[in-house]
Design a protein around this nucleic acid. Structure first.
Length: 464
RNA sequence: GGCGCUAUAGCCAAGUGGUAAGGCAAUGGUCUGCAACACCGUGAGCGCCGGUUCAAAUCCGGCUGGCGCCUCCA
């Protein structure tokens, strides 16, 4: 039984889908006006893991992640770069995809773009207008929050509490300070679409409501995003969708915690962010993915170099396990898989699934993997372990690793002949017990950017 | 002011009533020509105070610290 913490009820609940074994999920995607920072990378990785896990457990997953390609920030950025807003969003969608691919995030089933949904967004707003949930003010259209009874049910706040926060925009053309824009009028000299209310652009929240409806239906199983989207973004999506469709919008809401720097939220506005690609350049994308997986997704996480180093080292252990196992398989003799080994593999799977079913406890999932790693290391170091047993072990290992989406970055590098020759020389020197020469050759190999180690399964050469 | 989250070893992080998983780092050992890897071993009584209980990191009350949201933000 899969359980997830549902923001809507503030409780861990059994995850029941509308259609058995099918999941319709929507994840809020990026506004494409810049490169993503590692705070943005967290939901991308985390919900990719959840998707993989659901599929591993036999669900068919419709995974929708939008691109917000209409936004004032995009227009501003485009101006700075001297390109059109369309060119700007296209550019950053491509850059986003580079990062997502680097993070081993699988493409969504559908990646809807706002620009392609304009003919759906306008009627959506009209529906709200006809229902009395929207009103025109000047060249804009606003949502009438007071009319929606359940407003605040996701964030757990009443309208009056929210207003008491006294940070809401005072805008005298709105009926209520908490009313938000569905459509904003603008001049025809800037990016705009024609509508019954004149030239303008849609508000941020309506886009997601509309794209979710047209890609997944009126009621979806699961809606995901960052913690900071709970209010107002997701609250407003609920208000719009439920007022327009007359049915619940999403049954479950999952929100990931933030990444902090020096115990402060990493954000573009605070300018304390690290770009995903910058960190990747130094540590590799995979270390970032590992970072996201090593903690439970809801907990806040403090970013530090020390933490990244630890992640890198842990990842090395996983690679090491797979490499030794692969090497051992090549040399092992055929034989039967022992009942003991079978039990170990089965326990790893069971523990892993149990952890992941419990509100996506990836930290515990990793523990199951590492416990398997120890056993596998013992098996591959033992020359009497039959080939079939090692193969079964590798299969179990890969199965779990695939759900987490790890061990994808380091490929077997082509070793240049020059290095192979040096390795051969070292081998001869060692055989002749000329260790000074052997060490000298090793240093030379290191200087050329490769490492050489004598392992139980033979010589291992790696690119540094 | 309102709503919510959080506090476990040097770092990260599980554990929601029965005497603290796992990873990294450190350290002792086995293996190794050396090294690396691997393996075996070593470390916390869980922010503070009080209560409930045969039994609490886990439940209740209070306190303190950290963070987030209430404005664009993953």
């Amino acid at each position: 039984m899969i359980q997830i913490f549902n923001t809507l009820t503030n409780k861990k609940e059994e995850f029941k889908t509308i259609t058995p074994n099918k999941v319709n999920m929507y994840v809020c995607g990026p506004t494409v006006y810049n490169y993503i920072h590692i705070g943005n990378a967290r939901p991308i990785c985390v919900f990719d893991v959840f998707r993989r896990f659901l599929e591993y457990r036999g669900y068919e997953v419709n995974f929708v992640q939008n691109y917000t390609d209409v936004n004032d920030k995009i227009i501003k950025q485009a101006k700075e770069e001297g390109i059109t807003p369309e060119e700007c969003s296209e550019k950053y969608i491509k850059e986003y995809e580079k990062d997502a691919t680097g993070l081993n995030v699988r493409p969504a089933t559908i990646h809807p773009k706002v620009t392609l949904f304009m003919d759906k967004i306008i009627p959506f707003i009209q529906t709200l207008e006809h229902n009395g949930y929207a009103y025109r003010a000047g060249n804009d259209v606003y949502y009438r929050t007071r009319k929606f009874q359940d407003y605040g049910k996701l964030s757990g706040q009443s309208l009056d509490d929210l207003i008491a926060g006294a940070r809401v925009d005072v805008n005298d053309i709105k009926e209520d300070p908490l009313d938000f824009a569905l459509w904003k009028g603008c001049g025809t000299d800037e990016q705009h679409w024609d509508s019954p209310w004149g030239a303008g652009r849609p508000g941020w929240h309506i886009e997601c409501s509309c794209m979710a409806k047209h890609t997944l239906g009126d009621t979806i199983d699961l809606h995901c995003g960052g913690h900071d989207l709970i209010f107002p973004h997701h609250e407003n999506e609920i208000a719009q969708s439920e007022a327009a469709n007359g049915v619940p919008f999403a049954n479950y809401w999952m929100h990931n915690g933030h990444i902090n720097v020096d115990n402060q939220k990493m954000s573009k506005s605070l300018n304390n962010f690290f770009l995903t690609r910058e960190v990747a350049e130094q540590y590799g994308y995979e270390v970032i993915r590992y970072l996201m997986i090593q903690a439970q997704y809801r907990a806040p996480m403090n970013y530090s170099v020390q933490l990244l180093e630890a992640c890198k080292a842990s990842l090395d252990r996983l690679y090491q396990c797979r490499d030794s196992l692969t090497a051992a398989i090549k040399q092992a003799k055929s034989g039967a898989v022992s009942p003991n080994a079978k039990a170990i593999f089965e326990k790893a799977r069971t523990d892993f699934i149990k952890a992941m079913e419990d509100d996506l406890n990836t930290a515990d999932g990793l523990t199951a993997v590492f416990e398997l790693v120890r056993e596998l290391n013992i098996m591959s170091a033992d020359a009497s372990t039959p080939k079939e047993e090692l193969e079964e072990g590798l299969k179990a290992f890969n199965e779990l690793i695939d759900v987490l989406g790890l061990l994808y970055e380091r490929k077997e590098a082509e070793i240049p002949q020059e290095i192979l020759d040096l390795v051969e020389l070292r081998k001869e020197a060692r055989k002749a017990k000329n260790f000074a020469e052997a060490d000298r050759i090793r240093d030379e190999i290191t200087a050329k950017g490769y490492s050489v180690r004598e392992t139980r399964q033979g010589v291992e050469i790696k690119k540094l």
